[in-house]
Every structure is written in structure tokens, then in C-alpha cells.
Amino acid sequence: MEKNLSFSEAKKDDMTALKVTNLSKTYRESAGDVHALGPVSFEMEAGEFLCFLGPTGCGKTTLLRTIAGLEQPDTGEVIVQSPHYSGEPIIGYVFQQGALFPWMSIFANLEFPLKAKKIAQDTRRKKVESMLDMMGLASFASSYPHQLSGGMQQRAALARSLVMEPDLLLMDEPFSSLDMRTSQELQDNLRELLKRSSTTVLFVTHNIEEAVYLAGEVIVLGHRPGRIVRSETIDLPDPRSRLSDTFTEYLVSLRETFESLVSD
């Protein structure tokens, strides 16, 4: 699963969490090759929140899947490293939707990664319970995914990724299937949660507002093949307000870039 990832031991002052160089990917299909991505290069520091913004079909998901090791790149290299300790870094991945195991209760879903890592039962229990509490899911512990609303399901999926305490969290349009209110609520939750941890997050979305609200840095990805078109640091005070003037300025400016992409 992780064949294309190389892990290097972190030096003490090296805060790089993710280094992607010249990554590209072409899908070979019977109808012809689809050059989906790249080449793309970028770096992330530990604790950073980077958001890839791009229209549908720009290779955002391919990028995440390649970093996660679900897809083999044609060229380029992905280096993931944990800044805190040497060893294999833990990568979390939140899918668009529906990745919870429907035959398991929410509790069992959260327990899954800990069980896979052979963590002792009482430690497992404690970790899952505190995560459920933190995410406001405690009362759903014994429910099954289909009994939960879409928003709650994504919340549980996020909780399942966070319970492994990942060094790098990859999020693939995790809130795009939700209505705006629920989506914004989850965005707020995510910001709250990340304040308390040092997780590095790579988030992918086609929603400009979501990107500006969440990210420390936004990279706009152009249309097929996905290439970096623009990179913008979002310098907004915390807590962020979706109504502030600066927020709107970022929004308009990114929208301009975005529109020029689509009309090309």
C-alpha cells in the first residue's frame, strides 16, 4: 500500500511534514490516456493547513490518493515525515462520503484503526470514548452509520481518522455532500479540533469559501492536467469571520482566478 512513499528520518530542526516533487499521474484507459495531474511540487510544514482549490476533474482527488499511497504516481516522489519521532508516519484520510463501515457501530468504526494497530482494549476504549465526547458523538456510540444524518456520518468519519492521531490528515472534499449549514458547522468543529493538535492537514475542495475559511494557505489547481496556478497565504485573524471585509477580498480575488480557469 505504501510502496511509493519514502520515509526519511526527521532532523531535529526540520519541520517539513510533506514534500511532493514533480508528481504526475496519467490514467491509462481504453478510451485513451487521461493526464490527470501534474507535474506538481510543493512542501508543507508540520502543523500547517494547506488547501487545494480547483474545479471538478482537476486532479485534486488523484493528488490526495497518490499521497496516501492508493495510487502509484507516474513520476515524482512523495515524502511524508513525522516531525515528532522517527518511524513510519501515520496518515489519515477522510473520504467524500460513505467510507464508514455500515456493519459496525460508530464505536466499532472508531475502534477499527486502534484494533488494527493492536492497541490494548482498555486504552482503545478510553481513546474512542474521549474522541466521541470531543466530537459530540457520545450519544451515537452504539448507533450504526445509516441511522445518522450525513453530517453526523462525516463527523464520525473525521473522528475515525483523528483517533489514530495522524501526522498528516488528508481530506477529500469531506463536507461537499452536506448542506451549507451543516458544512459550516463542521468547518467550525474542524478548526476547533485542530487548535488542540499539531496535525498537518491537506484539504481538497472546490468550494472557495470553505478554503478561505479553513486554510492557512490556498493553492489553486488548474484544469486537466492539474497544475499549480496560484498560491495564496490566507492571513486572517482567529476566529475567522465569513463576513469580514478581508475575508471577502480573498474570496473575490480567488474567484477571479477560478473563473479564468473555467473559461479557458
Binding site: M1, A68, G69, L70, I90, I91, G92, Y93, F95, G98, A99, F101, F112, P113, A116, K117, R160, S161, M164
Partner: peptide, 11 residues
Amino acid sequence: MHLEAAGILGA
């Protein structure tokens, strides 16, 4: 997707 999720979750 369930298999991929399981793999990423360390199974």
C-alpha cells in the same frame, strides 16, 4: 472504498 479505508486505517 471500504478496503481502501481499511488499508489507510492501518489494517
